[in-house]
Design a protein around this nucleic acid. Structure first.
Length: 290
DNA sequence: CTGCATGTTAGGTT
DNA sequence: CAACCTAACATGCA
């Protein structure tokens, strides 16, 4: 569930709390979340000092002095918590780092265990592969870059915005919110959207992401920041998950549709659906039928 | 018990 | 090849 704003909130919190600290101990409770190589090899990081923590799309990297990294993805229910070393450990805490001269531990916690941890000794190919497979960051892309990306694919806009290899960081919540804000139906084909509309979408995305970060992210169910606290941006959602309710712009009923395999909420008055396209099969059938 | 939700990936189809 | 669909993953919740 954590998308760009939630991950950004966590990364900022971690930088404030654990940047510059040296790992004194690593406790591995559930090795299989450490994927792609020997999970216990992560103990190599004991004694290493954190240089900085960064966000890459929805990934979090902890970079150590010397350049080696631990890469993490929270997927749906993952949390990174900084909690008192001697306090009660929350259930589903799979990996715990202790630090020299610091009373708190960093805990990777994940109820569903979809989250991943990948580490790197020397530009390990797994870490590099993940990072190099990411598209542009929505907060760093330019208006022109965005227009170019949208126009160079012929794909349903929602599906395109969700493609991490093209634009990295957006998920179901912020795609629905941005498309609604810009007045674009999620099933519109990307290369059929007017330039003016694409630019409007660009600004909707930026505005919404920044506001969400400001509000500490959206807590729909499980998201918590590194202190275990909820975000408040869910109270500013206007369309996500609101099917059956009234559209805040026009008052019509918001409906639920499935796009790119995901539940989507749309107002068909404010977000005009594309004209239905005949599939090749339907076209053939019509041909034979006449 | 059933179905749904979430992000990603693998595998198959159009 | 690009776009699209579905299943799988693990678990909690209604």
């Amino acid at each position: 569930m954590p998308e760009l704003p939630e991950v950004e909130v966590i990364v900022r919190g971690l930088n404030k709390k654990i940047r510059g600290l040296t790992i004194s101990n690593i406790q591995i409770n559930f090795p299989s979340i450490i994927k792609g190589m020997n999970p216990y090899g992560i103990r190599w990081f004991k004694g290493k000092t954190i240089n900085k923590i960064q966000r890459h799309g929805k990934f979090i990297s902890i970079e150590f002095v010397g350049g080696h990294k631990i890469l993490m993805h929270l997927c749906m229910s993952g949390k990174l918590l900084v909690l008192p070393k001697n306090g009660e450990l929350p259930k589903h805490s799979h990996l715990i780092f202790d630090f020299e001269n610091y009373d708190n531990s960093l805990i990777f916690n994940d109820v569903r265990r979809f989250g991943k941890i990948i580490y790197s000794f020397a530009g390990d190919y797994l870490v590099d592969e993940k990072l190099s497979g990411l598209g542009v960051d929505p907060l760093e892309m330019t208006e022109e870059q965005f227009v170019e990306i949208i126009q160079s694919h012929r794909k349903m806009i929602k599906s395109l915005l969700l493609s991490q290899a093209v634009i990295s960081g957006l998920g179901n919540i912020y795609v629905d919110e941005s498309l609604f804000d810009a007045g674009i139906h999620p099933m519109n084909l990307s290369n059929e959207i007017e330039r003016e509309q694409i630019i409007k979408l660009y600004h909707s995305i930026q505005k919404i992401l920044l506001a969400a970060i400001e509000a500490g992210g959206s807590t729909i169910d499980s998201f918590r920041n590194e202190e275990g606290k909820k975000g408040t941006f869910q109270f500013q959602h206007r369309i996500y998950g609101k099917y059956g309710e009234k559209c805040p712009k026009c008052g019509n009923t918001i409906i639920k549709i499935n796009v790119a395999g995901r539940t989507s909420s749309v107002c068909t008055t404010c977000q005009v659906p594309p004209a239905p396209r005949p599939t090749a099969r339907v076209f053939r059938e019509c041909w034979w039928g006449q």
